[in-house]
Amino acid sequence: MSEHRAQPELLMPQAVLSHTTAELSAKYTGVFSPQTVERYVFESYAALRRTAKIHTHLTSLAGRFAADRLTALAQSQGAAPKDVPEVLFICVHNAGRSQMAAALLAHRGGRLVHVRSAGSAPTHEINPTVVQAMTEVGIDLGAEFPKPLTDDVVAAADVVVSMGCGDACTIYPGKRYLDWELDDPDGQPLDEVRRVRDDLDTRVRQLLTELTTPVLS
């Protein structure tokens, strides 16, 4: 009897993910097969489910994650345009430094850059103190979530900025790799997180200048 009651709960995520697969397959008609899209959607769901403490809205987040990964894959294969530099920020948990850096660069750069972030061992939520520190400077991280590092987003990036995650990132020729040494805000008081935030903001501003300044021949 209990097995029959559990069945609808098991089918619900699959139904939502199948609907997401159909929508993304239509978007990428002629670029990726429906089978590839389906694999990305269900793999993305499984990857997020491994770290999620609460599964509410997990299918929606998986859809967003899969869509971004498919865009990155299309970019790396030359099937989607790259109109601006692509920057990828990586830390261990994708809950502090990489989230702050990505949000700051997106805020400062606007449409001049496109930003992604990921973690080599992502946790289940963004550090609440990090969220508070970013809110203080007018940046809302409420819609963001930790994401695992995948090869497709690395392949699509022009600049990969690592912060304390060692050799987790695949090395591709022709890309710019930076290693920013910053303290991990995990478990730190608000004043310390603010210091890391401001340090990141200085580095992000410099990177944005480098990415958007024309090279004189």
Rank of each mutant, 00 (worst) to 15 (best):
L17R: 14
R111M: 08
S120D: 00
T123P: 00
A46F: 03
R39T: 14
L178K: 06
T213C: 01
A52K: 07
Y172G: 07
P122A: 12
V131N: 01
Q206L: 15
P81H: 10
L200D: 06
L190V: 12
V196E: 05
G96T: 04
V193H: 02
I139T: 08
P173S: 14
V131W: 00
C169Q: 14
V204F: 11
T212V: 15
D167T: 14
Y177N: 04
V84F: 01
A95L: 03
T170S: 10
T209R: 12
N94G: 04
L10E: 14
A22S: 13
F89H: 11
P148W: 05
S217M: 05
L10H: 14
M1A: 15
V161P: 03
S98R: 04
H55P: 02
G78S: 07
R194H: 13
L17N: 14
R5E: 15
L182Q: 01
Q35Y: 06
S25H: 03
L73Q: 09
H4L: 14
D152C: 13
G109F: 10
P146N: 04
A52W: 09
D191M: 09
S98Q: 08
R64D: 11
Q14K: 12
K53E: 06
Y40Q: 08
D158Q: 07
V37R: 04
Q77G: 08
L58D: 07
E9V: 09
V87F: 05
T209I: 13
M1E: 13
A155C: 03
Q14M: 12
D198S: 04
E181D: 13
H55F: 12
E43V: 04
Y45C: 00
V31K: 04
A121W: 08
M1N: 11
E210V: 13
L88Q: 07
G119Y: 08
A62C: 01
L48A: 01
A121M: 13
Y45R: 00
M163N: 05
R39K: 15
T202E: 15
A46I: 03
S33L: 04
P122E: 08
D158P: 01
A101Y: 02
M100Q: 03
V41D: 05
A46C: 01
F65R: 00
M163V: 07
Q99L: 02
M100C: 06
P214W: 08
S33M: 02
G110H: 06
L24Q: 09
S217I: 06
L10D: 11
A47R: 10
A47Q: 06
T36Y: 02
R194L: 14
S117E: 00
F65W: 02
L182P: 01
L73A: 08
K53A: 09
R5V: 15
D83C: 01
R194C: 10
T29V: 14
R194N: 07
L141G: 07
V37S: 09
L11A: 10
E144A: 13
G142L: 11
T170R: 13
